[in-house]
Each structure stands twice: as C-alpha cells, then as structure tokens.
Computed example of a mutant assay.
Amino acid sequence: MTATRLATAVLLLLSSLSQAREVLRFAIDAHNPPFMYADDQGVAQGLYAQTLRELGQRAGLTLRIEAIPWKRALAYLERGSHGVAGLYRNEERQRRYLFSRPIYREELVVYARKGQALAPYRGIASLYGKRVGVLSGWFYSDDFSRARDQRRLLADEAARDAQNVDKLRLGRLDYLIGIRESIAALNHGELEETGIFASNLTYIALPHDQRSQALLQQLNAHIPDLSDKPRAP
C-alpha cells in the first residue's frame, strides 16, 4: 500500500471511529405517512425512519432521527446540521447536497373528485389554468416548477396531504398530486386517479462537506440495489 493510500485509509478509519462515538442527526417529514411521520409521542416513524435506523445499525453509526415539518428539515439540511431522508433529486439540489444511492421509488398520482375530473391527466399542460394541491417545500418535476413559476397553474400548498384532500373534497382544488400510498389512507371513495404524474426515486441527502463524504461512503455500502426492491404499487 502506498503512503497516500495508507493515509487515506487511516483518515477514513478515524472518521468512522469518530462518527461511531457521536450522534449524527437526520430529519424526516412529520406529516407524510406511511413514508415518514411523527407518532403520538413525537417519535419518527415510517419507511424512511426505519431505513435510516437499519442503515445506522449496519454501518455502526448512532443516528438521531427527528420528525419535523418538511420545510424545517430542508432548512436544517441547508444549514449543514442534519441529513434528510426521502428527498427527490434535481440539478439544483445536486449542486448543493450530497446524495446517497436511491432508497425507494415513489409514484405520484394526480387525483380529482370522483366523477368530476375536468380531463384525464396527459402531461403538465393538463394542469394549466387549474388549482393544484401540493405539499409545501416539495419538488415535483422541472416541468411542474416551470409551469408554477410562469403562473400557468396555481400551486396551492399545504403542510400535509390530509389538508389537500379536504380542500379537494370541498371543491377548493381542481386536482391534487400525491403519493398513492399516502392518499389511499385518506381516500374514502370520494377521489379518483386521473393519471400518473411521475415515478420519482428518493434519496438520503447530506450537507456538501468533507465530513459527509466519508459518512456517505458508509451509508452507500449498506444500501441495496433498488432494482432488487419491489416497485411502489
């Protein structure tokens, strides 16, 4: 082993030992069941909390997982104090953060009130001129972001899916975009699918710094190939 490679290995080992002793902080959304949420005692639960716990155990890391409002989770990631699980990736975020291997695939669906869909969803132009319920702080797609910024559609933000479902039931929205599993728990037959909006991979994101580079290597070593996982139904 060359002196350079030996020095690198020693640094990674020291970093690993340091991280094993410290508590690493991660944030997830408190209001996005079944993927991530806070239970009645405020404890982080859901698919992404469980994924983080399993990865921490396999990698020998001590993680503190906090379920908080999504915008605050993103602010903590930007500040560099927390990692975040369940984040979609886009070009801007790739410049700002480090991303793990993908951990899940979420299928986003466009919903309308049953029997009152204005038209099937056949692309972003289907939403032009419509009131569309979305979650605050979420990225949906580049096309959606452009349409919102150009005011081709009205993106009506809410902190949680239940609020958007209620607004759609009351006729205050034309459509909402939500993950099928999340909306299924809230839909009692009043809503119908009008089309698939997107199928997005989700990731663990870390602050873009040298300390996070070593942590990312440790996490990635224990994240299975997504092709081995079943797709979202």
Rank of each mutant, 00 (worst) to 15 (best):
F99I: 01
I65T: 07
A85Y: 11
A75Y: 05
L77N: 01
R231D: 15
R93W: 10
A147G: 03
A159D: 12
Q163Y: 14
P207F: 09
L186H: 01
I65F: 02
A185P: 09
D174Y: 00
A155D: 09
L24G: 05
F197Y: 13
V23L: 15
T51I: 08
P233C: 04
L63C: 00
E106Y: 13
L17S: 05
G83Q: 00
L14V: 11
D29Y: 00
A117Q: 06
Y97P: 03
Y37M: 05
E193K: 14
E190H: 05
R180S: 10
N200L: 15
I65V: 12
D142Y: 06
Y121N: 00
A3K: 12
L154A: 14
R105E: 15
Y97I: 08
Q45N: 04
S199G: 12
G171P: 08
I68Q: 06
H188P: 11
E78Q: 12
R172S: 00
A59N: 08
D156H: 07
N200A: 14
Q210A: 15
I223M: 06
Q41E: 10
T4Y: 15
R53E: 12
S182E: 04
Y88V: 13
I179M: 06
S227K: 03
I183D: 08
E91F: 10
L226Y: 01
R105Q: 09
G56C: 01
I183W: 07
E107L: 03
I124A: 00
A198C: 12
P69Y: 11
L47P: 03
Q45S: 09
L191I: 01
Y111A: 02
D161K: 05
R211C: 10
G123N: 10
K114F: 04
L186T: 05
I204E: 01
A119P: 07
I183E: 10
G189P: 01
D156F: 12
S126L: 02
R21K: 11
L13H: 11
A158W: 06
N200Q: 14
E157D: 10
W138I: 15
I65E: 01
R122S: 06
L61R: 06
E193T: 08
E78T: 14
A67L: 04
R148C: 13
R105L: 09
P69M: 09
D166C: 04
S81N: 11
L135V: 09
A27I: 02
A147L: 03
L206R: 02
N200R: 11
T2C: 12
M36R: 11
M1L: 15
A147V: 01
I196E: 07
H208R: 15
G115L: 02
I223Q: 03
E107D: 11
L215P: 01
